[in-house]
Design a binder for these strands. Structure first.
Lengths: 182, 182
DNA sequence: GTCTATAGATAGATAGAC
DNA sequence: GTCTATCTATCTATAGAC
């Protein structure tokens, strides 16, 4: 991994683990084992770190949707199952952006909204039901929220954000679609 | 409203509107129209502001549950309908605590978890179905997440967090419970 | 209770050596 | 590309006048 990527990952993890306030240039540099000058060579300002994180997120979302399509996954199932994997790069990057969004100009929030709408559309295309698609998106957001509350443990079997929970959700959604299609 | 309450509210709104990073003692004092010394008389440190916000949240949750019970509301419906009202003191206080949670000791996260579990239990007591109760909690969390993404507009008719959306959710949940009870 | 003044630490960022 | 040194602004917090 390039040094630049390593620094961006360190920034992201500090935002997630210690909060936006603790993710200072000093902290990023020290955690990544580099001097502040070294960090500032790759990212000329703190805002540049945020920008790079957003750009990385947009790329990850595109890759996620491409992979979903190329491997022929069901969008609704794919969305719930990838959302629950809080250890993935996509989920961690998105969670970090959600944290810092209010302090940023509109671009970060725009990127988050755009990603949500792309997933929503993919699910609508699959199941042809706007409201059910919204339910699935909301459930995914709820899972992510609760995963964060538990400290973001990957593969957790928490009552609110575990693997088993997703299986229950899928059964419930399957039941729902049955009655709505009847 | 007491000056102390006014200052706490200002801190909370700064966290929500500008982010944790911008909610400094200087900013709180200036926004509330008081000097920094005046602020520090009421809250001896920044940590004291966070503590007071958490205590206020715990009290609001208790009042919310008492009101729900005393007025005889359906817990699942009450939860979804109060969650969508992003302008309420409870929702704003909770959202602010979610923002600052990672930077805090365990107490803030404990309070958030405890509140979630109290609402979950109330819904389980109503509908007698653990998994459906979890679905309702997750939908509520998803609504809150999306309300934040839209800037927390009260009474919004957003596709993801509006009043009409909650009516759809309630119809869907009602349908679900019908088939699960059959 | 509220203020001003100020201390001491830390923030983001620049300059220039290597 | 990475470092040290340093500047300036801002942050939390204290002291003490009113």
């Amino acid at each position: 991994m390039s040094r630049r990527s390593k620094l961006l990952e360190t920034f992201r993890d500090l935002v997630l683990n210690e909060g936006e306030r603790a993710a200072t240039l000093d902290a990023v540099a020290a955690t990544a084992g580099v001097s502040k000058g070294g960090l500032l060579y790759h990212f000329g300002s703190r805002a540049a770190l945020v920008d790079a994180l957003r750009e990385h997120f947009e790329q990850l979302v595109t890759e996620d949707l491409e992979r979903m399509r190329d491997e022929g996954h069901s969008p609704s199932s794919w969305y719930l199952r990838t959302t629950v994997d809080y250890s993935s790069e996509l989920e961690r990057t998105m969670a970090a952006l959600v944290r810092i969004a209010p302090a940023q100009e509109g671009e970060v929030r725009d990127a988050l909204r755009a990603a949500r709408d792309r997933w929503h559309q993919a699910i609508v295309d699959e199941i042809g039901d706007e409201q059910m698609a919204t339910v699935i998106i909301l459930l995914g957001d709820g899972i992510a929220y609760n995963a964060e509350l538990e400290g973001g443990v990957a593969g957790s079997d928490s009552r609110f954000a575990g693997d088993r929970e997703v299986e229950h959700l899928e059964q419930i959604i399957a039941g729902l679609r049955t009655i709505r299609n009847a």
